[in-house]
Design a protein around this nucleic acid. Structure first.
Lengths: 122, 122
DNA sequence: CATACTAAGTAGGTACGCTACATAGTATGA
DNA sequence: TCATACTATGTAGCGTACCTACTTAGTATG
């Protein structure tokens, strides 16, 4: 354990940091228009979030639906199996707006705390 | 303590967001000079991170020590029980610098993803 | 019909923040 | 003397969410 981090491929973020963030980013991905799980995973990966696996994404999407933030419709696949499309509900739009604002404040709080000059009195 | 609307610590951030962050912020707190658990918790709370409980902090500090990032010495309490002081090790200094840099990049990635304009083509 | 890619999903493991509790030293006031 | 409160460290057990690994299934290609 405690192996050296590979800083040349920064697309493998610690899973602790992804907690909650993947959920928000998934909502944000759906906000751009109805899309389906596999495409969301591909999009997040190409945006630099690393590979989001099925064991993470599909239970997450189920949670979003149960929370009332997304609704689903089945559609035909474009040369492949059927696709389950996710749409933001009004509650989802509202939640995304508030949660994104909160996350930004939280991220700035942590970043500022981590990066302010070290006080060496000891 | 009166927990109404305290301006210094009104925040109760989602526990998912605190994952990994509290560990980093604790290291950052120790970087300002040797300090002990209870003071770290008070400092983080007054910095806006919310109330970090003993059940979170003390196992966390044990993990930091086991990882080799901090060392400990016992000191007398100022009118109270003994205090276990934590010091950053050279490995801890190095880890903090790299992890803080990584976290900042991660936070910016997520914030940018969440806040860029929504594309309404559907 | 073997392989590969797309697509959705489940099972079980693990890590970590959470609540709640245990222990103990010091201080103050009834 | 005892009750209470604050300081200070620590453990036990729970829940959640990400992880690895696996399963099912449709389409396409050689």
């Amino acid at each position: 354990m405690n192996e050296e981090k590979d800083r040349t491929s920064p697309e493998a973020w610690p899973s602790e940091w992804l907690r909650g963030c993947v959920e928000l980013c998934t909502l944000r991905a759906i906000a751009d228009g109805p899309t389906y799980g596999y495409a969301i995973a591909s999009g997040l990966e190409s945006s630099g979030f690393g590979s989001i696996k099925g064991g993470t994404l599909y239970p997450l999407l189920t949670r979003l639906e149960r929370a009332g933030w997304v609704s689903t419709t089945w559609g035909a696949g474009d040369g492949g199996p059927g696709r389950k499309f996710y749409h933001l509900t009004p509650a989802g739009v509202d939640h995304l707006a508030h949660a994104a604002s909160d996350w930004t404040r939280f991220a700035n709080l942590v970043t500022d705390y981590l990066t302010h000059p070290i006080d060496e009195r000891h």
